[in-house]
Design a protein around this nucleic acid. Sequence first.
DNA 1: ATGAAAGCGCTAACAT
DNA 2: ATGTTAGCGCTTTCAT
Lengths: 329, 329
Amino acid sequence: MVTINEVAVEAGVSPSTVSRVFSRPEVVNSVTRQRVTEVADRLGYTPNRIARSLAIGKSGNLGLIVPDIANPFFAHLIKAVQVEARQAGLALFIAETDEHRLDEYPLVKAMAKQVDGLVLASPRMSDSQIRELVEIAPIVLINRKLRGVQSVLIPSADGMRQAVDHLAALGHDGCVYLAGPRNSWTNLQRRSAIRGACRRHAMSYTEMGPFEPRFESGVRAADPLIAAGATAVIAYDDVIALGVISRLSEREVRVGREMSVIGVDDSPLAAIACPPLTTVRVPAAKAGAVAVRLLLDLLAGRDANGGLPTELPTDLIVRSTTAPAPAAR
Amino acid sequence: MVTINEVAVEAGVSPSTVSRVFSRPEVVNSVTRQRVTEVADRLGYTPNRIARSLAIGKSGNLGLIVPDIANPFFAHLIKAVQVEARQAGLALFIAETDEHRLDEYPLVKAMAKQVDGLVLASPRMSDSQIRELVEIAPIVLINRKLRGVQSVLIPSADGMRQAVDHLAALGHDGCVYLAGPRNSWTNLQRRSAIRGACRRHAMSYTEMGPFEPRFESGVRAADPLIAAGATAVIAYDDVIALGVISRLSEREVRVGREMSVIGVDDSPLAAIACPPLTTVRVPAAKAGAVAVRLLLDLLAGRDANGGLPTELPTDLIVRSTTAPAPAAR
DNA sequence: ATGAAAGCGCTAACAT
DNA sequence: ATGTTAGCGCTTTCAT
């Protein structure tokens, strides 16, 4: 491995000069700079980021923790974070908790030591654990609210309300909510928004779950749904909704006829599904991008947004899985 | 930040002892160890991984480069790599090239310096660039073949042959291939397998493209397909296939009747689609897991698999988008 | 504009 | 079993 010193002797300058050429080129004489870069190229020298990190006390890395990489919502979130981080010249560490609440904390803690900042997407760990992490590295939360910690929130209350209004307008006199992970902030938000809207419309509210956000959860949920005589269901997310639809079709209940189904996320899946899924659009990519920008502000000492949570809006996208209630037809 | 030295003085031992307690606990007297860990806890000390990396010359990190994080194929690949890396106690850097061939090399090179090994998934860069990277860090390639570089390959020839056989059995007298990215090894494999199989069946072979693996590419491809009077089409991947189906439905050509469509990947999308997509199953997760294991072997000096490429099999999954040729009915 | 020297936090011979 | 010492490769005062 070729170091700064070898370049220095070869170019007939001191190590400091070589260092400057790579960190603050403008302060070194252009002809010296020229010579140094030329030698560096010839020797194939490139700075050792780790040594650099140790010296300046910053890693140039960001960390991102998500529950499930393959879930389309998080996949798009990751993508946006990656793009934004790169734009800022930062590399991205990524880790998945796989919805395993227990491993989450040690995992994140280990990562926190080697990054300049951390984005936690829908973390399941306790408030106090998050507080401890904040001591180690600047943190931005996505879909989790905690006093004194910067966050970007997608409350989805608007979208859920729109969803229930939509159902009410179609004449449904009740709806069931297929709940997501028990401790998820997002789930709590959705649940209470739906419940509130149902009350306002004098619709009955039933809850099933909790379900992990997987396709299989949805297929598992479908039969109880039929048994309960439901006519309308809102799932925690698109993935679950799609599972429901799949099983419903197998059971020969026509979705968008006998049963109305609404998902959340508007992942690409939703538009492709059959029938196309009515869903609440959630700005995943936007959330990721905003989170990174907040983190960057934090790192730069700009006090981002006055420490207030940034809230992103949601909206109902009506497609073909919702229809008038059978009784109302 | 509390360092090893502060712990040392507080515990009345030398820094080396503290260091040992954290790296090779078994070599230090259990009572000293006890005292040190206790002090460390009290002071909230945790080792600085960056300093450690510099000292031992290894980072404990793996890097993964993918063209598109949100593509389900890569999403599942990433997930498997992440799981496998974590199991080995390694953190994972991830970067996306977004199918931008130009940025790819510098990006990867920067990452190569701070990881112990690299997995390149479907890289688009040139052979010589890859060769240069191999000088910097151990590398395992996925779906790219290069003499002297370890790789895991999914040639998909079997699957494509099965796909064409299937079409032939349904009475189609030709098929069109919606090609993927021009320089992609995978695309070349698929193309030649399809072409070969068509020749064997005396079927006509037509190619359109290249297309980036996106839904929109597929919708764009559909009209020319109709115009060309095609009865059967094999898309580079599921995502494109789904786009085709979507546009075909809009144009009111019934998929699985007038037109047969086959995808590749068997992403979750395929089963959910409408109608369910006939597709060639590609073991994305398996590929990721195997790649990490090969990399680990490389790092350990075990010469993995004799340096031979590991090949993973593919198989046709027949669902509902393929049907007898209209003429043959 | 450049150089000398100290140090970032940890590890690894080598001694004891 | 533990301490001493000398780095790992880079940055950064402080001089010049």
